[in-house]
Design a protein around this nucleic acid. Sequence first.
DNA 1: CGATCCTTTGATGCTAGTCAATTTCGGTGG
DNA 2: CCACCGAAATTGACTAGCATCAAAGGATCG
Lengths: 242, 242
Amino acid sequence: MMAKTSRRAPGSSAKAESTSIDPALGRLLAASITVRARRLQSLPIGRGEAETVYIVRSGVLHIAARVPGGRREVLCLLYPGDVFRTAFAPPLSDVALIAASAAEVGRLRWSSAESLSQSDIEVARYLSRAEASLHARQMLHAAAIGGLNGEARAASFLIELALRTGSRSASGIAVDIALTRSDIADYLALNADTLSRIMTRLRTKGILTQSGRRHAVITDWTALCELSPIADTQQKMEAPAV
Amino acid sequence: MMAKTSRRAPGSSAKAESTSIDPALGRLLAASITVRARRLQSLPIGRGEAETVYIVRSGVLHIAARVPGGRREVLCLLYPGDVFRTAFAPPLSDVALIAASAAEVGRLRWSSAESLSQSDIEVARYLSRAEASLHARQMLHAAAIGGLNGEARAASFLIELALRTGSRSASGIAVDIALTRSDIADYLALNADTLSRIMTRLRTKGILTQSGRRHAVITDWTALCELSPIADTQQKMEAPAV
DNA sequence: CGATCCTTTGATGCTAGTCAATTTCGGTGG
DNA sequence: CCACCGAAATTGACTAGCATCAAAGGATCG
């Protein structure tokens, strides 16, 4: 019940942001067309077109869809280094890849990625590792949506964001919240109003401070992790894959 | 709002059950060790061990995990032809691959699958298609958990099962429900009690009849599909991938 | 054929959703 | 630099759906 262990705070890890890019990733990006997307711009995940791969170079993006007669949903978040094949998206209506912040992505036909994989095993390995990690994240997200209450889900979201994009600052871990409140709510399968209430509660508890809509500082990392039963799992998944 | 279209009933499609197996799948299975699992037997998804691939030959299996301090969750269902890499599973506690019915699976080290992929592009294609389809199903499942109410989720589950394992019979579509009620509830992020209430309602509405715990007949496919906003999407995903 | 697990059903409480009013933010132009 | 506007976020009151708890009824297996 209290097996929370290492509490390694984020921002210290030298992630593959732009420094020290994986060589295989570099070759993959070299073979792809770079697309610059501004905030809220949406890239098509057309069905019927040839299968395409998107490789995130910088920024945060998400896959959004609409369940007929239901609300909009954000199905997954994509960070630098992630690889998304259009075939990963289920054939829901209005499925799209949307830039939450200004972003750069590489675009490539799947057939090209495939032949590159055949000739360059490092690329094949990078792709399969990226696919597996995205899949695992997707499963964990489903587990979070299905098994955690609102507060725990919100905490998990903040932890995810902090691990991926956070940076240490004097007062805690600074996080740029690229998504709007509604997008976050759609990601967490919560109502925007409910999410707002939860965020207020977190601020009241002194876990979080916000300056402006897009910028937050996590002032009490330990307390935040206590709120989320999957905090440890998330941290393990961020750890270098050996 | 009522774009429900084709209502193609299941059981008619010649799925890759055992007849007409995909040649690449055959070669993959030939390279793997066949494991026979009886009902409820669990196969390890050990972390720290070498990455392994499981290929479902027959039966239905599921991935179950436990969120610390939370309930057990069934994260995904696997059917014949599916391929599951252990790296797909998030590092939650008690993650396991469990046979819902008696099942046969092929087991293979990932490194073997990888080298097979390098020498046999058909195998590589089979694997990448299988990964993409599993990923899409996982995303759709997250969308269902997050965006549909209990009844719609239950309907979607029945539709999934019917499309995968159903067989036409005189009175409707006969479905073997391999999972226990609790497992289904854990899959749908519902309470077992609530699920039971929903199933009773479906029976009362004349959509479903049950004889014994494991056997059901869907007597009104159209009405069942009306209950689930993602019915069309599920059917599209079952359709032959062109 | 008995024991046990699984399932069903009812009564009650809590979490999160809905609707509506208000405040705050962020961008724009004066 | 400040005033303004529209969009986004917050907050409150109320409601719906689902979870929880408890108990009884069936199915399945040895």
